[in-house]
């Protein structure tokens, strides 16, 4: 059973492999209910974390500068993860956006079809260091006027929550705009085959992977640009410029949230430092440069079906 919805600026697809001849792991009604519950996570997390609705929990938080604001367990989890990656990458990944970017027209509702992604520009010098977390009280305090862009992390978190919903079914796949989680086996009973988009040739693959019970995400310089920007959408938050030493980064990790954030961070850090970050975090990755040189972690080679 496969269902897709348009959500979080992408198309989210949930694919539950149903058994053809063997006894299914659960009744068909259960499959249906779990697929719907999995998709509901996308809607729920978007409602919580969207920057485009002033009533979202995220924007309510951004309206209270300087105060320690109690937040839901879900929002706390997402924010604290984003800040942890920011710290570990020395700010190469940074979820904070200066508020004056918002006042310059980067705040249009994406559901109208006119999508503008806010660049992570440090226009007024804010950074992740301006976010204070208190795990005991479960509060978030923004020390300066800023807005958190949790887009990619929230999307990864939604994939992970959807995966948790589907785990009893064993064999399933979740695709949120190329951010993937693969559970168990594909309909042919083999590990899922995942192609990695070629960063320079539309429609071609640069490698393919055999994966099971893991997440994979790719950040590329071909991704959607904002309407009035000339560069690609990944900026180095520390400098405000577009990194040019990497064409794409693919990360295979236990969670989609980690795979997505670490792919972005490694993209900004470049091949050498990026690979170090991935190794330090215990995840696998493939970094492709604009000249199509490949840098990969040791474990990546075993999952990679090369020459495809």
């Amino acid at each position: 059973m496969i269902r897709s919805i348009a959500v979080m600026g992408t198309i989210a697809t949930v694919h539950a492999v149903t058994s053809s001849s063997d006894r299914p792991p659960a009744g068909e009604d259960d499959v249906e209910a779990r697929v719907e519950a999995a998709l509901d996570w996308f809607r729920r997390i978007e409602a919580c974390c969207t920057r485009f609705d002033p009533c979202s929990e995220l924007m309510q938080l951004s309206a209270q500068i300087g105060a320690a604001v109690p937040v839901s367990a879900m929002l706390y989890e997402i924010v604290q993860f984003a800040i942890a990656v920011a710290e570990d990458s020395g700010g190469a990944f940074d979820p904070t956006i200066g508020r004056n970017m918002e006042t310059r027209g980067f705040n249009r509702e994406h559901r109208t079809g006119h999508v503008i992604r806010t660049p992570l520009a440090k226009a007024d010098g804010v950074s992740y260091r301006d976010v204070a977390l208190d795990p005991d009280a479960r509060t978030v305090a923004l020390r300066r006027p800023l807005i958190l862009d949790l887009g990619a992390v929230a999307k990864g978190f939604a994939v992970d929550m959807a995966a948790r919903e589907l785990r009893p079914l064993a064999n399933f796949a979740i695709n949120a705009g190329g951010d993937l989680y693969l559970g168990g086996h594909n309909p042919a009973g083999a590990p899922w085959t995942v192609g990695i988009r070629h960063p320079r040739r539309d429609g071609a693959l640069i490698a393919s992977l055999r994966l099971s019970d893991t997440a994979v995400c790719t950040s590329g310089d071909y991704e959607r640009t904002s309407a009035n920007s000339t560069g690609h959408h990944i900026l180095d938050p520390r400098t405000g410029t577009s990194p040019d030493s990497v064409a794409s980064v693919t990360v295979v990790a236990p969670t989609t949230m980690a795979a997505d954030a670490l792919a972005t961070a490694a993209f900004v850090l470049g091949p050498r430092e990026g690979l170090e970050l991935l190794a330090r975090q215990g995840v696998e990755g493939l970094i492709v440069t604009p000249a199509l040189e490949r840098f990969e972690t040791q474990g990546m080679a075993s999952a990679c079906v090369c020459g495809d």
């Binding site: 190329g178 192609g195 990695i196 539309d202």
Partner: peptide, 15 residues
Amino acid sequence: VDYVSGATESADAFY
């Protein structure tokens, strides 16, 4: 392949 990792621009427009 079963799925492709990495979004495409045309896919964004389709979305």
